[in-house]
Simulated scan of single mutants.
Amino acid sequence: MDTTRSADGTTIAYDRSGSGTPVILVNGALSTRSGAHPLAEALASNFTVITYDRRGRGDSSDTSPYAVAREIQDLGALIDAVDGSAAVYGHSSGAALVAMAASSLPITRVVLHEPPYGPDDEESQQQSDEAGAAVLQLLAEGRRTDAVATFLTMAGMPSEDATEYAKTPGMAEVAHTLAYDFAVMDHPAKGGIVPVSLLGTIHQPTLVVAGSASPPFMTEAARSVAKTLPNGRLVELDGQHHVVPAEVLAPVLTEFLSRR
Score class of each variant (00 low, 15 high):
Glu41Arg: 09
Phe47Gln: 02
Ala101Cys: 05
Val196Cys: 02
Gly170Gln: 07
Val235Pro: 05
Lys227Ala: 12
Ser212Lys: 10
Glu164Asn: 11
Arg16Met: 07
Ala250Ile: 06
Tyr14Ser: 05
Leu253Arg: 05
Leu178Tyr: 01
Ser103Ala: 15
Arg223Cys: 12
Phe151Trp: 14
Val194Ala: 05
Arg233Tyr: 09
Leu234Phe: 15
Glu220Asp: 13
Ala131Thr: 07
Ser197His: 07
Met218Ala: 09
Leu257Gln: 11
Ala101Asn: 05
Arg55Leu: 03
Arg57Gly: 07
Gly76Thr: 14
His37Glu: 04
Asn46Trp: 03
Tyr117Cys: 06
Leu234Thr: 13
Leu229Cys: 07
Ala96Leu: 05
Glu114Gly: 04
Val98Trp: 06
Ala131Tyr: 09
Glu41Phe: 13
Thr11Asp: 03
Leu253Phe: 06
Gln127Ile: 12
Val98Arg: 12
Ala179Asp: 14
Ala147Val: 08
Asp2Lys: 02
Pro119Tyr: 11
Gly20Ser: 04
Ala166Met: 06
Gly232Asn: 04
Pro116Val: 01
Gly9Thr: 00
Pro65Tyr: 08
Glu255Ser: 15
Leu25Asn: 11
Gly58Asp: 08
Ser93Arg: 00
Gly142Cys: 12
Asp74His: 14
Thr150Val: 03
Thr254Tyr: 04
Val88Ser: 13
Glu247Pro: 08
Val209Gln: 07
Ser31Ala: 14
Ser61Gly: 15
Ala86Gln: 08
Val235Gly: 07
Ala175Met: 08
Leu139Glu: 05
Ala95Thr: 02
Thr51Arg: 11
Val174Lys: 05
Ala221Asn: 06
Met154Trp: 13
Ser60Asn: 15
Pro195Asp: 02
Pro230Val: 03
Leu253Thr: 04
Glu130Pro: 00
Arg259Lys: 08
Ala99Asn: 02
Phe256Lys: 02
Asn46Leu: 04
